[in-house]
């Protein structure tokens, strides 16, 4: 009971981020959270102007909408998640040590989706999508790999 259980989302995220060193110096675009529907994880579908000409608007919308859908599913209060919560409570939360929660399963799905999108859409265009979980679910970070970071004036 001392431990937090298994580490929540271990390393799949780390393996997916290739060329990590390169992303340090390039320009980055951040898609911010959309709080209009409460504190559930949703991202704005506003197309960032920096990506104009680099990425198809439809592809961007598809990515964001898919991510939003995944997170909505993770945070949805369905019967099964409530049962899971109740069961964990009855077992004095010892259940979390040995079983994976619904949310963690959804995060796995998100990580897979991000990796797949990177491979199919973003990397060929010189972009890199970062899993929002790595950025504290605050932003979707899109790195423009071939564009150096511009210094602020």
């Amino acid at each position: 009971m001392k431990a937090e259980g298994m580490p929540n989302h271990t390393t799949p995220l780390d393996e997916i981020n290739p060329r990590q060193g390169q992303t340090q110096l390039c320009m980055k675009v951040f898609v911010q959270r959309d709080y209009s529907d409460g504190t559930t994880v949703r991202f704005q579908t506003l197309f960032p102007s920096e990506l104009e000409g680099k990425l198809d608007k439809g592809a961007f919308l598809y990515t964001v909408n898919q991510l939003n859908a995944n997170f909505a599913e993770a945070e949805k209060g369905s019967c099964s998640t409530y049962c899971e919560g109740c069961l964990a409570c009855i077992t004095a939360y010892l259940m979390y040590i040995c079983s994976e929660t619904h949310y963690e399963k959804c995060l796995r799905k998100v990580a897979k989706f991000v990796a797949e999108q990177n491979e199919r859409v973003y990397m060929p265009r010189g972009l890199l999508l970062t899993n929002p979980v790595d950025r504290g679910l605050r932003v979707i970070e899109i790195s423009i790999l071939d564009q150096p970071m511009v210094a602020r004036t």
Partner: peptide, 23 residues
Amino acid sequence: CHVLCGPVPPSLIDRRALVTDMS
């Protein structure tokens, strides 16, 4: 129900993960 039995959000700091990107 939502507060006590709702889905548990993940720990965002992921403190047990290995540091891959020191810079």
